[in-house]
Nucleic acid binder design. Structure first.
Lengths: 247, 247
DNA sequence: GGGTTTGTTGCTCAATATACAACCGTGTTT
DNA sequence: AAACACGGTTGTATATTGAGCAACAAACCC
């Protein structure tokens, strides 16, 4: 598969700008890509002229430009799953008291498309637009358990509980598939447990997953089966909106 | 100013994908850019491999990819003005009963960065991430009245009330600057009136504008001065958060 | 004020993106 | 049902174009 190099460079730079907390200088980018700064300078001028990057008027360094907001919001608003899922996320929050999330598969990761916050003082907050690994999040595992997709080669460890062994993950996913929901037991963040279930469309294809996240104290292991039942029920109701028919 | 053509092509295509309601075929894109479809095919593969575009598995047509959401949300969350403005927008809604918006200058247009909805049954709803012209929106005119920026060459007409004459616009903006707020009197959408005021930073530079929008019935011309006073007051309060000092 | 760092511009040459054409898979038409 | 039309993908040669070098400009820091 041939790719347009100069376009790829531009996109890589956009990703870099997104990953960098602060603005980025042209020399840093050149080092990062192993290119000359003059080349990068021209790339940045192009990105800037289309609004994808923006140059700070005093520091002359670059950051993301407003056009990425235009694109991002356009796609968000255009995703039917998001609108459809909203009331079901709300239902999850009402019935469990924990924050609810909607995630989809994107680039081999989970992309958080929506969140409904709970009213609890201590609560889990995951920004919309965040990417997270598949193998250690409840949403990710829910997606993985039904998606025709191989888990990534390297299973990075985030806590001591993260599953880093491929065989163990396979067994874990099989189990999740059989029970209809996936659990993240402090595998990504300490003190956070999550439960999620997949959402299917009319063709029995996974289109996303919804789930809840809460502090480990409230989300005790004994409470998991009960909340999991709620998550499964709501996920099924959402699937039905896509005329999903279980076999 | 030299620009990287192949990168520019890719960005143009992203813009096209955003503008098209539905997914777009490769041939359409090729026609649009006056290029061969084989070239576009490769461009799309590149965009897709970085998650900026996505190919529909059945129709094989393209739409925006998840990565644009990642970038967009990243920038939104990173914009301090947005966090700062939130409570002030809320205050506008509470005190006027109309929807409140935050806008910034982007690419010679107004970019809507945030919205707080009112509880009225009939209300104005402008999506976050929308771009609108400067010369016929209250936010746009508020920005224009203080920004060191020329209005666009062509002043497009959206209603019969849109100001399409440069000299008339200059006079109008002078007036807006003197009174401290700008009004859109059904100049962009029929039955919608808006009032907005600029927000300044410590260097007395315009960083954005906040305002309210409502149906022409409730937003009667007699009511405008009263609501404008509120908008100005709140905008000033927000400016103060940026240690703005009036001269 | 000189030295250092950072971003921009001119210019040349080789890499690379483009168009042509052939190919392949779908859906449509008669 | 077979042929056809349509849309997307791949191979390849050539000419465009973008990369690097080097000089330049501007800001920053001792």
């Amino acid at each position: 598969m041939s790719e347009i190099q100069s376009l790829a460079r531009g996109l890589k730079i956009l990703n870099l700008l997104a990953e960098s907390e602060d603005s980025v200088g042209i020399t840093e980018i050149a080092d990062y890509l192993g290119m000359d700064k003059s080349s990068i300078s021209r790339v940045m001028q192009t990105l800037a002229s289309y609004g994808y990057a923006e140059q700070d008027s005093i520091t002359r360094r670059y950051r993301l430009g407003p056009q990425v907001v235009v694109l991002g919001q356009t796609l968000l608003e255009r995703t039917p799953l998001r609108d459809q899922a909203r009331p079901y996320l709300q239902q999850l929050v009402d019935r469990t008291g924990e924050c609810a999330h909607l995630g989809v598969l994107a680039q081999g990761q989970v992309l958080y498309l929506d969140q409904v916050e709970s009213s609890a003082t201590l609560r889990v907050n995951t920004r919309i637009g965040t990417l997270a690994p598949l193998h250690c999040t409840a949403l990710g595992k829910a997606l993985l358990s039904y998606a025709p997709l191989d888990p990534p080669d390297q299973l990075a460890a985030f806590t001591t509980r993260t599953i880093t062994n491929h065989e163990a993950l396979r067994v874990h996913l099989d189990h999740a598939r059989r029970q209809g929901y996936a659990v993240d037991d402090e595998e990504y963040n300490y003190d956070v447990r999550c439960v999620a279930a997949p959402v299917f469309d009319h063709a029995r294809k996974v289109v996303g997953a919804i789930g809840i996240s809460g502090p480990a104290g409230r989300m005790s292991l004994e409470r998991i089966p009960g909340t999991a039942a709620i998550v499964c029920e709501v996920a099924k109701a959402l699937s039905n909106r896509f005329s999903f028919r279980p076999r």
